[in-house]
């Protein structure tokens, strides 16, 4: 990107390093950190919503809804992630295309599944073949978000279900004694109190989610681990910047990144725990009450 970098093989020392670290591929590497953070920022709330829905469904008095909630959590948690990321994504992609085909070319009469091959009309491809590379990346990213949200939502379902069961029965009974309806008890007493029980489990899931992003490459979304492996590998003269196996340095960089993420998460989660424990009928809440008086 700089004029001095025009002929990388003739420069050396710090200039070489400067040019190396600002090559197009390195800029892509730096951008992939943004991709990962964006993925976390979108996936975490999405899995919370799915998990909350799942937990409410699993506690429902309506049997089919209860089966749906429990079945979702049991099935997804029982299947290895890698299977989801290999097959579920392809199935999801094909599902979108089948639905799109119903709208954009309803008259298409060729069979969709021809042996091992999958065929929809060209206009029904998502994205269509003429779309920009960005559209393909955004689509891959969206598939990743949906898949991550479904997988982690199942774990959140279980955590929240357990947290809801952990709220002392006496608390709910008091609400009922005040004449609150079932719905009011749920909204005013159960939900505000369950978070303190859910937090340790949710914090665990958050940490696992941070480290699960290398699975993104199975979806052609290039994340930080893909780039670290790709940039760090032995580079022959075929490349502009040949170098020996430098993966250790790249992975040390990732280590620092992950440790920082962990540290920041711990601080935030610690504050959240303190805040949620306030006034709760738990040992932590009791300790805070005593310290204040």
């Amino acid at each position: 990107m700089f004029a001095v970098c025009a002929d990388p093989k003739s420069i050396e020392g710090l200039t070489w390093l400067g040019c190396y670290l600002t090559s197009g591929k390195h800029l892509d590497f730096y951008m992939s950190f943004v991709t990962v953070l964006l993925l976390l920022a979108v996936t975490a709330p999405a899995s919370m919503v799915l998990g909350f829905g799942g937990a409410v469904a699993a506690r429902s008095h309506v049997a089919p809804l209860r089966w749906l909630g429990k079945g979702y959590s049991a099935m997804v948690r029982g299947v290895p992630d890698i299977v989801y990321f290999m097959f579920f994504v392809i199935a999801l992609d094909q599902g979108f295309e089948i639905v799109k085909q119903q709208f954009v070319c309803p008259g298409w009469d060729q069979p969709i599944f021809q042996g091992l091959e999958f065929h929809v009309c060209p206009a029904a491809k998502v994205p269509v073949a003429t779309a920009s590379p960005f559209a393909f990346q955004a689509y891959g990213f969206s598939l990743a978000v949906i898949t991550f949200a479904i997988v982690f939502g199942a774990f959140v379902t279980n955590v929240l279900y357990g947290a809801m069961q952990a709220v002392p029965r006496a608390q709910l009974e008091t609400g009922e004694a005040y004449g609150m309806s079932h719905h009011q008890v749920f909204r005013r007493i159960l939900v505000p109190q369950m978070w303190t029980y859910a937090l340790p489990g949710l914090a665990n899931l958050w940490m696992i989610l941070i480290k699960a992003t290398p699975l993104l490459f199975l979806l052609s979304v290039k994340d930080i681990v893909y780039y670290a492996r790709e940039l760090g590998g032995f580079k022959t003269q075929a490349y502009d910047y040949p170098h020996p196996d430098w993966r250790i340095y790249y992975f040390l960089g990732l280590l620092v990144f992950y440790l920082l993420m962990t540290k920041v998460s711990e601080v935030v989660l610690g504050r959240l725990t303190a805040r949620l424990s306030q006034g709760q009928a738990t040992a932590a809440g009791e300790a805070m009450r005593k310290a204040a008086t």
């Binding site: 994205p127 269509v128 073949a129 003429t130 559209a135 955004a138 969206s142």
Partner: peptide
């Protein structure tokens, strides 16, 4: 939003895909 944007891009990117 992202999904919507992607779908829009995918839909409006033209049908001369052949």
């Amino acid at each position: 939003k992202l999904l919507l944007a992607t779908t829009l891009i995918a839909l409006t990117a033209g049908y001369a895909a052949a």
